[in-house]
Nucleic acid binder design. Structure first.
Length: 551
RNA sequence: UGGGGCGUCGCCAAGUGGUUAAGGCAGCGGGUUUUGAUCCCGCCACUCGGAGGUUCGACUCCUCCCGCCCCAGCCA
């Protein structure tokens, strides 16, 4: 258990006070996703918070699926969510829980409220109910069914349950206050009829509890002490408390709200993410451009980076927009220490070293990491013909050393982990394009300074032309071109970045990358962080996703 | 408009009557470097949405004003 020297957010303050006052002896939290989509980075913040609080105070955290609406939920989502939370590195208490496990108990409690005269079967249809509800400024009016005898409501509720009533014809409502300034308290629906199979309970039920009637009770059943949710549920809290107060629950959980995470250039709304997937604007929920946990994973973002980022975020009631650069900082920060180094030439330009004997080969070695000796060294075959990146050569010899620290005709450059070389001559094809560089190498410069008078302009990456592998690189950029794609007029789809994916084929990578494995992080030196993409790789040609470039 | 919540540096954010108003990101300047990476050093809010007031003293208390977000699903 991690010690909390001093509470750093308001929820920790509350928990500490509860612990100190003896109101709570063991902290129990929960992460309660609805299995109607994949988890995204916003959920990651909630996961880190809930599991983190439990860990910090020696308590436990449940993973509970809030599956009260079979219309939108499925087992595919349940499985994906379980995988994502596990990947993030958290362990929930016992087995995953499901709201649907509590349907019978919830139903009993509904009957209890009816018997107490605190709930009734209402026959207003959706439209009528809206009219009766009033508006933000005008009170609602009582349903004509509000004073229906409990016995009658009980009988009708049972009819609803067994499927004898048509969908939409009736609801069970809590009898609270149609004139409440809080619209949520104007006799909210507790049960609605949905003659629909549920992914876990099958056709056992024809009615399903609403979020408001379910959530607090689920918390109580599990002994949750601190039910942490996002700000938009603040107006539901009085209702949460009304149910916990009026029902004979085993304990009384408390709800606390914090501001959800918003990231610029990103959309974090399950509805919109689902739309991107369904309309195939992206390659599924785990498309590397998606802010989903599975997308970030496929992109190459490490679980540690995601966790560090989430932990750096404030838990407060302000709803701000975090700059993507802040997230990227944590990605680079972790990848820099974790990623093994490698070289990959994106846009190959052949360099023939005329003074290096034809057919000769020597094996150079390079560190797996500049400041970690626990990673294995790499073997780099060196030959007369090598590839460098076209961007690392310029035929403009007027470029200053400071401005262009790469290869220029008649000047020297260091091959990373290799020799110092010089460019002697440019070979052009019929169209005038540079097709090859004839150069020379400076002997005895591997790991050694070049002789007096030779000053390499810089260090560039390279690969032996005869000992390298071909690979495809998938370069990703922001999915959206504007900071706030989902605010403002028009559809967020209008702001999709047409250049969010650029595929660079047949890049030349060092031989060791033939053994790259999924889930490993690599830094292609001077380029960026990459990871193997199993989906786009073929047996003879690996594909790598660019997680993020170097700064 | 009714109710709820929030406004501290470009962004995130500590701060709960007496601190030189933390820290991170971004930015800028410099150093190290066989990655223009990492790393290191320095700079970056006389001011806390605004106006009054209480107080010896207010970002912290009071009043009014301004702005933003959430709530009128048989979604969660």
């Amino acid at each position: 258990m991690t010690d909390i020297e001093k509470p750093s957010n308001f929820i920790q303050h509350v928990i500490q006070a509860d612990l100190d006052a003896g109101r709570v002896t063991k902290v129990i939290t929960r992460f309660p996703p609805e299995p109607n989509g994949y988890l995204h980075i916003g959920h990651a913040k909630s996961i880190c918070l809930n599991f983190g609080l439990a860990e910090q105070y020696g308590g436990s955290c449940n993973l509970r699926f809030d599956d009260t609406n079979p219309e939108k939920e499925s087992d595919e989502f349940v499985q994906a969510i379980i995988e994502d939370v596990r990947w993030l590195g958290f362990n929930w208490d016992g087995e995953p829980r499901f709201a649907s496990d509590y349907f019978a108990q919830l139903y009993d409690w509904a009957k209890y409220l009816v018997a107490e005269g605190k709930a009734y079967i209402c026959e207003l249809n959706a439209e009528q109910m809206r009219e009766y509800r009033g508006t933000l400024t005008e009170p609602g009016k009582n349903s004509p069914y509000r004073e229906r005898p409990a016995a009658e409501s009980l009988a009708l509720l049972e009819q609803m349950r067994v499927g004898a009533i048509d969908e939409g014809a009736m609801t069970l409502r809590a009898k609270i206050d149609m004139a409440s300034p809080n619209v949520n308290m104007r006799d909210p629906v507790m049960y609605r009829i949905k003659k629909m199979a549920h992914h876990r309970t099958g056709d056992a039920w024809n009615i399903y509890p609403s979020y408001d009637f379910a959530h607090g009770q689920e918390d109580a059943i599990e002994g949750v002490t601190h039910s942490v949710c996002t700000l938009e549920f603040a107006a539901n809290r009085p209702l949460y408390e009304w149910f916990t107060k009026n029902l004979p629950l085993p304990c009384v959980p408390r709800q606390y709200e914090f501001g959800r995470l918003n990231l610029n250039y990103t959309v974090t709304s399950k509805r919109k993410l689902k739309q991107l997937v369904d309309e195939q604007h992206v390659d599924g929920w785990n498309d590397p451009r998606m802010p989903t946990i599975s997308g970030l994973r496929r992109r190459g973002v490490s679980a540690a980076a995601l966790r560090e980022f989430c932990d750096s975020l404030a838990v407060a009631k302000t709803d701000g927009v975090v700059d993507l650069a802040q997230f990227e900082h944590f990605i680079r920060d972790d990848l820099n220490t974790v990623a093994q180094r490698a070289m990959c030439v994106l846009n190959p330009l052949k360099v023939t070293l005329s003074n290096y004997p034809e057919g000769q080969e020597e094996m150079l070695t390079a560190a797996g990491h500049p400041n970690r000796d626990d990673l294995p060294e790499r073997c780099l075959p060196f030959t007369r013909e090598i590839y460098i990146d076209r961007a690392d050569f310029s035929d403009d010899s007027t470029l200053s050393r400071k401005k262009f620290k790469r290869l220029v005709i008649d000047d020297y450059v260091r091959l990373r982990s290799g020799y110092v070389i010089k460019a002697d001559e440019i070979v052009r094809d019929s169209s005038g394009e540079i097709s090859e560089i004839i150069g020379s190498y400076v002997p005895n410069t591997v790991g050694e300074d070049p002789p007096e008078g030779i000053r390499p302009r810089g260090v560039i990456h390279w690969v032996s032309a005869s000992h390298c592998i071909d690979c495809d690189l998938y370069l990703y950029e922001n999915l959206f071109t504007v900071p706030a794609p989902d605010s403002g007029e028009g559809s967020f789809l209008d702001f999709i970045n047409p250049e969010s994916l650029k595929i660079v084929r047949n890049c030349k990578a060092e031989v060791g990358l033939a053994n790259a494995s999924e889930g490993e992080h690599y830094q292609f030196e001077r380029e960026g962080y990459y990871c193997l993409d199993a989906k786009n790789s073929t047996a003879d040609k690996p594909a790598f996703n660019r997680t993020i470039d170097l700064r």
